[in-house]
Design a protein around this nucleic acid. Structure first.
Lengths: 333, 333
DNA sequence: TTGAAAGCGATACCAG
DNA sequence: CTGGTATCGCTTTCAA
């Protein structure tokens, strides 16, 4: 560029880098800056990456961008990462087998400086360990069975306990949980935590035998329908859904059978998705600290890049129960 | 890599590129492939980009990833773009002034091959024209005032007309529209189209004087509240909200005043966001062809990259009115 | 069919 | 404080 404009080759590099601009004579620096502006000079991040070995990019891999808990996380990540002068590159696995490997291979190829992975399946453990040998990996939202990774998660033990205890305290004698896919840690933990509460409180568990193949409205409707069609004594008086979509499915299943929520059956969701406050009835649900999770995950990723991260840590953020109108005290038979 | 493994320098390049692998002796090719696998060789997209001048990346700039109409669009884009061997890089402006320029500068720096811009403001016209001189730009969802760009949009004239005509045909004598920000073309067009229908059909327009500063629930509540607090004869019997969030805000405003929807006031939304079918009442709304929009935008971007795109085109996709329970025939005073 | 060599644009180190 | 020079890893002629 300005190599032709007025002056020299590598001095431009110094003049344009805020870090080292001081090392350049003020006069020449201004000349360079002027030329840069005039030519609309943009630099070339590609060449820089090749030379320095760093790309300034942090990859974020999500399972499904349509999932409403993601945007706040992405925003949290972007805020922290942007502050540090990095860019975020977002990719989506759609929970499809093989996609995770394909995507991370690609990221390695592009020399991404770190990855934040919000798409881990429990059976990806070996793959993720191998990725972590090529570039720093930070797990977000979805963890793995062992604690040997860098991870920032929601505390699902606490979340499921809040929800379940709430139903128990309302006096419900028969509970059911609608379980999300068993290959995702969050759902596994929620299931276990629910069971612990139910066992400890001596409440009857009438959960469906099946689990959802995906945490969708349709699957929630199916699972809820299955237990609601049982003979009266085998029906739940309250339902804990592993996420809001399944809770909405449960509401539909109730409506289809002429049952009212919360008068006949209470329902608790999970995630506090947008609009859950505006459903019929407004949904009692578990709220996650998504922004904070994003910021923490980004912070961990940055500290791994600079090498100042010590051993693997797993951070767990406390969720909060949001009381609305889909749950009420048990008053039935 | 395999330069040391067994063999030669640039032959590896040929052997690994499916396009030119034919030009290599089968025996040596296998040797190369074997070595590549053994070393876990990944290639270096950075170096390739530097040499070829192309990055294989298409940037997508959205205003707000939390907006529920985006995921299907992103999926459509990714499907087409991935098929063609490109990667998508997603960035977010948050509708903040200056962010668009900062982001696109960055994309130019990274030598992105094209940008799909779903974040255009009407006052960004000059900026966008200048970006288009550095790399191919395709506008998505949000267009500009003139048709001199490559763009794939929803047909907002049709969408607003469907919604408004629906209300007119239900016999409503007084309508109000809740307008989204005036610096976004979609909202401007919806506003104009609504007005045309209202004028043509001789219905009274009692819209608020103000427009929303952002298309949110809160702003919808505010605008709806303003017109509902007028003396009886100045109140609308039906409301057309420029998007679903504002429609939800309108529902809240109604509820706060003890008014029922649809018995007292009908409400139409726009976008057919997830869960709108599960609101109280289920929302009549306008459904967009988001997946198709994403695919078309991606297709245009690719054709601009290969240079086979002719002159600027604006594609407009027809939306569809989804009838649910938030609208009913006028039966009042 | 394969090897040799140049060069993409920036950085880093060493002289001057 | 600034210029020269090598180099990052790959693609791409041009020869052999």
């Amino acid at each position: 560029m300005a190599r032709l404009a007025q002056v020299h080759p590598g001095t431009v590099s110094r003049a344009l880098d805020p870090e080292r601009a001081e090392l350049v004579n003020e006069a020449t620096r201004e000349r360079v800056l002027a030329a840069a502006v005039e030519l609309g000079y943009r630099g070339n991040a590609v060449a820089r990456s090749l030379r320095t070995g760093r790309s300034g990019i942090i990859g974020v891999v999500a399972a499904d961008l349509g999932n409403p808990y993601l945007p706040p996380i992405l925003r949290g990540i972007e805020a922290v990462v942007g502050e540090a002068g990095f860019t975020v590159l977002i990719a989506e696995t759609h929970d499809a087998p093989g996609r995770l490997k394909a995507i991370t291979d690609h990221l390695v190829t592009r020399r991404v400086d770190a990855v934040i992975l919000a798409a881990a399946h429990l059976d990806d453990t070996a793959l993720i360990d191998s990725i972590d040998r090529s570039m720093p990996v930070v797990l977000a939202v979805r963890g793995l069975a062992d604690d040997g990774h860098f991870a920032v998660l929601h505390d699902d033990v606490v979340g499921a306990r809040l929800a379940t205890e709430h139903l128990v305290q309302l006096g419900h004698p028969r509970l059911a949980q609608l379980c999300g896919p068993g290959n995702v840690l969050s759902f596994v933990v929620r299931r276990r935590s629910y069971r612990e509460v139910v066992a400890a409180r001596g409440v009857v568990d009438v959960s469906p035998d099946d689990e959802a193949s995906a945490p969708t409205i349709e699957e929630g409707r199916r699972l809820a329908g299955a237990v609601l069609d049982r003979p009266a004594g085998g029906r739940p008086t309250a339902i804990f859904a592993h996420n809001d979509m399944m809770a909405v499915g449960a509401l539909s299943a109730l409506a289809e059978r002429g049952l009212r929520c919360p008068e006949d059956v209470s329902v608790v969701g999970y995630n506090d998705s947008p609009l859950t406050a505006h459903l019929a009835p407004p949904l009692t649900t578990v709220r996650l600290q998504s922004g904070e999770l994003g910021r923490r995950a980004a912070g961990l990723a940055l500290s791994r890049i600079t090498g100042e991260a010590p051993a693997a840590v797993t951070v767990r953020l406390d969720p909060e129960l949001i009381l609305r109108q889909s749950t009420q005290e048990y008053g039935g038979t």
